[in-house]
Design a protein around this nucleic acid. Structure first.
Lengths: 313, 313
DNA sequence: GTCCTTTATGCCGAAATGGCATAAAGCGCC
DNA sequence: GGCGCTTTATGCCATTTCGGCATAAAGGAC
């Protein structure tokens, strides 16, 4: 079926004659006469009765008329949608991130982002460790949140948007001092049973590297992909949990300190990665900007856990 | 926009490559490549990124993909609908009839008719007197219910489908005998104040003609287009109402008798008219048949008012 | 480096489309 | 009954569009 023929049919039905439709559509009358004939042949039925030299809509024609109007309206709407898309502020944005990042950052960003980009549809995918690198590679997502060290230095496939630093933290049951003044040198963790994240997490690999540099082997007695489980066990005096500062911690029954190496906090950059081969869009960049703002806003929060520890220490 | 281009776009998006789409659509790959390019030019945006020599759906392309699927589905549905229409049991049937006929006959016919012709849409128009002749003339309706005498004998514009006879009735307040044994000779109506229908009703013109033949002038004190108003006034002893037997009478406080001329009931044929110039459809004829059946079923009902009057007489 | 898959472009023949001219069919008016 | 007008359908033709063939170009896998 040709939309052109459908348009002719609807116009003739509405104006009453092919001659009037010809004037309206700026196409010669014989051409429209043929289009009507072509459409009738294609559909296999009469849309108009020929009464003398005049046309009269048939019952079948009447039935199809509304369907054709709807079809033409929808085609027009697709054109309108395309015009809207041309403005660049519309599309699908697929983001792969850890559950923690979604909870702590993305969930706070979405309301304002949706107001600013009403025609962008954000689709979230839960992914941990290197999963989102693979998803980026396969083109399944546009953005993947991770830590900067997740990408090998010689791996140039991904563009990286820095959001802010993430520090290594140790969380234990309030009791005998865990570290001094909110800090613990990493080598001082040697005697503690440790509760750590799985090796798929970049933060875990960063922790392992720091231990190696400090010349000691960590006593990891439990590994998990669920950071909150680690915190729950730490609260139950089962050990000391090693977690990133990007984790939103609601528990108040824990003593949390920064892990340092040679007196300096062990930091890693939280980033959003994208596929270098894929052209970036304005709404994707805006999303990254808003996440970076949100991470910066949360940074004072990482400082506020120190003052909370003050009374217990 | 060309549906052909839209179909190509959706097929390429689904199969992943133009070459595969070409195999599927049985069109050479270069032709499809051009169709994609043509669609992108027309819409003014990129539907696919060219990654090396491969295509990757853009965000905009993804947004439009579903719209295009819907559009294609609807176009297909129009084609399906046309095929259904081709079978002849589908269309619009426009019927003009008096309110009384709609209530007494058509409302009883519609449920069964709709079951038998589920794809026919019946549209009812209320029309009295000669209105439906004009509507038929203008092509506004397919069928017009009326009495046979509504059409001038030399008027050959309309085809006529007889439904059944309609008799002239007189209705009055139960009291002194109105007529004998359920009948009243028309000349015996002379002394009564009469409540009659407007002159647009064929039944009224038939009544006037019978009075003229009987050689007397009827004493019509009130005229209306609302038969039920006439009955209400008759019940209130305001006069004697002249009505057709096709009227469905629910009141039990009235004495109703047949009006006769020279001992024979005055009858007229109830018919459904159609425009001779317009080809008839099977579902229109079926509608007439069902109405005729319903009118015949109602005829025993016109006899049953006699037995109801028996006790009062 | 070779082979394979895929897309984009040049070129060309066939098909489709639309315009012009005009015959045919009614209808209204005189 | 003839004329003028409006309208549709058809013949003919020029132009445009479309799709197929050939092939260059770009990566990816081995």
């Amino acid at each position: 079926m040709e939309l052109r023929h459908t348009r002719t049919f609807v116009t003739v039905a509405e104006l009453g004659t092919i001659s009037k439709a010809a004037l309206h559509l700026r196409i010669a009358q014989p051409a429209l006469s043929r289009q009507i004939a072509d459409l009738e042949r294609e559909l296999g039925l009469r849309l108009f009765d020929r009464v003398g030299r005049r046309l009269r809509l048939t019952g079948e024609g009447e039935q199809l008329l509304n369907d054709c109007r709807i079809l033409l309206n929808y085609a027009s709407a697709v054109g309108d949608r395309a015009q809207l898309l041309r403005h660049g502020d519309t599309g699908v944005l697929k983001v792969a991130a850890s559950p923690q990042f979604i909870e702590a950052t993305i969930s706070n960003v979405l309301p304002r982002y949706t107001r600013n980009y009403p025609n962008v549809q954000v689709k979230l995918f839960e992914a941990v460790g290197l999963e989102n690198l693979a998803m980026l590679e396969r083109g399944e997502v546009h953005l993947g949140q991770n830590l900067s060290h997740a990408v090998e230095p010689n791996d140039h496939r991904f563009a990286s948007y820095p959001l802010g630093p993430v520090e290594l933290l140790a969380a234990g049951h309030p009791g005998p001092n865990l570290g001094q003044r909110g800090k613990i040198e990493i080598s001082s963790l040697a005697p503690y049973p440790l509760l750590a994240l799985d090796a798929v997490f970049s933060v875990r690999r960063t922790f392992d590297a720091a231990c190696r540099l400090a010349g000691f082997k960590p006593n990891v007695i439990f590994e998990s992909r669920a950071p909150n489980l680690l915190l729950a066990l730490a609260s139950a005096r089962h050990g000391v949990a090693i977690i990133p500062s990007s984790l939103q911690i609601h528990r108040r029954d824990l003593q949390i300190v920064r892990v340092t190496y040679r007196g300096r906090p062990i930091r890693e950059m939280l980033t959003v990665l994208s596929d270098k081969r894929r052209p970036s869009t304005r709404y994707a960049e805006a999303f990254c900007e808003m996440c970076a703002e949100q991470v910066r806003k949360a940074l004072p929060g990482t400082r506020s856990f120190e003052s909370r520890r003050g009374r217990t220490g």
